[in-house]
Simulated scan of single mutants.
Amino acid sequence: PGLYEGEIAVSAPGAPERVLPLRLTVGQDVVADGGAGEPWRLARLGWLDSALAQDDEPVAPFTPVEVTPVEITPVEVTPDEAADAAGGHRLTILGRTVELGPDGLPRRLLSAFTPAVTRADGPPRDLLAAPVTLDVGHRLEHGPLSLDRPGPARARWSSRAAGRDVLLHTEGELEADGFLVVRATLEATADTEVDVTLDVPVREEIARYAMGLGLTGRACPAAYDWNWDTPTRNQDAFWLGDPAAGLQLSLRDEHYARPLNTNYYREKPLRTPHSWAGDGAGGVRLRTSEGVRRLSAFSGPLALRAGESRCFEFRLLLTPFKPLDPARQLSERYFHAYVSPAEIAEYGANVANLHHATPPNPYINDPLLGADALH
């Protein structure tokens, strides 16, 4: 509290500067909750960009990301032992395990969710029939994989690779809920041509169902072809798996911005990823052979000038995310209107959903303006 004094200088083209004195008196009273309880102060505007709870701490029931180095064993071993021994890092989260190869790409994905998805401690099942690969059309020599943990709920890694006329910088991260993203930036050190293909080979016994890229949920087809036509298709992701183990592949670049949804979509639609769409030849294909469903995203031939780069980002959502609680979740019955609790109970519902723009919650994102009615 007290008197604060200062000056404000005001200037404009073609006019002399004017210096105005400023006196600000701060009173003794403290505004409760920063003024959030008094809508006329517009204090809640500060909440719009709040970073509250944006940290790397796990949220129940998710568990911290556990990191275990995996050594490369040069001696001959069985295929299963080789999978356990091959290099990189093993990252463990609730019900799932991600094993990274030296190139920073997943070489194994395992799910321990039970068939009913009510527990996450069942026998681990491999989703992948072989490691995920990213072929850029050039032979690459990979450097060491570095990994760190900004916090318990996130691990991140990076690696670099060099080849004739190209450099590849790979960055990735895994969060405790099963969000895995890899950003591979390919830079040309001389004028060259590249043809990028991402291969995700999933076991056919796992990939029983599929959805996305124009397909509604259904039994997974043996073959499927899709090409980029964002203005009419509005798609960039494909899921395949079964209820207890699956993955969604989403293709992006450095310019990705989440689109708006429902009737607001056209105001901010999906952006076509410049890298994956290539020069018009990019697309996605699914093929099935010898017990493997191979999901491939490709750019087609790309001509890069020296110093030019393209970012090939892909996200894998590892499903399911957490165990179900049928006794609790299937007992919820929703009511979507503003009536008395007695009427809601008589209807048989036990959860009331008060939508905005209807009484007693007339203002979107600001229930305080209707606090008296809501009380």
Rank of each mutant, 00 (worst) to 15 (best):
T358P: 01
P64F: 01
L295E: 06
H356L: 09
A306W: 03
R96M: 04
R258Q: 14
T216M: 02
E267Q: 10
S111L: 04
R328D: 15
R44Y: 08
V98K: 08
L240H: 09
R139P: 04
T272P: 01
R149L: 02
D225A: 10
R258C: 08
A53V: 13
P58R: 04
S158I: 02
L369I: 08
D177A: 13
T97W: 00
G280H: 00
P273S: 04
T189I: 05
A257R: 15
L302S: 00
D191C: 05
F298C: 02
Q54W: 14
E313I: 10
L168E: 08
T73L: 15
T185P: 03
S296F: 03
V181Y: 07
R293Y: 00
A176P: 04
A244E: 14
E173I: 05
G88T: 05
D84S: 14
D366T: 03
G178E: 08
T118H: 05
E76Q: 13
P16G: 09
H375Q: 13
E204P: 01
S146T: 15
N353L: 15
R305M: 04
L249W: 03
R139Q: 11
E254C: 05
T97I: 01
V70S: 13
Q329R: 07
D253I: 09
P124V: 09
A188K: 06
L91G: 07
S158K: 15
L317I: 10
H336P: 03
D191M: 04
D29P: 00
W239K: 07
I206L: 11
E57R: 15
E313V: 12
I72M: 09
Q329M: 09
D56G: 06
V75A: 13
L251I: 06
P123Y: 00
L354D: 13
A155N: 07
V67E: 02
G241L: 06
R44Q: 10
P39T: 07
G282I: 01
F321A: 03
V284D: 00
G35F: 09
L369S: 06
H355Y: 07
E57P: 04
P115E: 11
V339H: 07
W276L: 02
P79E: 10
L110R: 15
A357H: 12
P323G: 07
P320F: 10
G283C: 00
Y264D: 11
Y209W: 13
Y347G: 02
L260N: 08
F238C: 05
A129D: 15
R108Q: 04
A51Q: 15
D242L: 11
E76V: 11
E343R: 14
S111E: 01
D229H: 01
P79L: 10
S331T: 03
L368A: 09
V77G: 06
E17R: 15
A12M: 07
R310I: 06
L198Q: 08
R287A: 11
L140G: 12
R156C: 06
R156K: 12
W239I: 03
L368D: 09
G151M: 00
G14L: 12
G348R: 11
S299L: 08
G172L: 13
H274D: 09
P115V: 06
A257H: 12
K322R: 14
L52E: 07
A53S: 14
L3P: 05
P323L: 04
D199R: 14
A222S: 15
P323V: 03
R149G: 12
F314K: 10
L198G: 11
A281F: 03
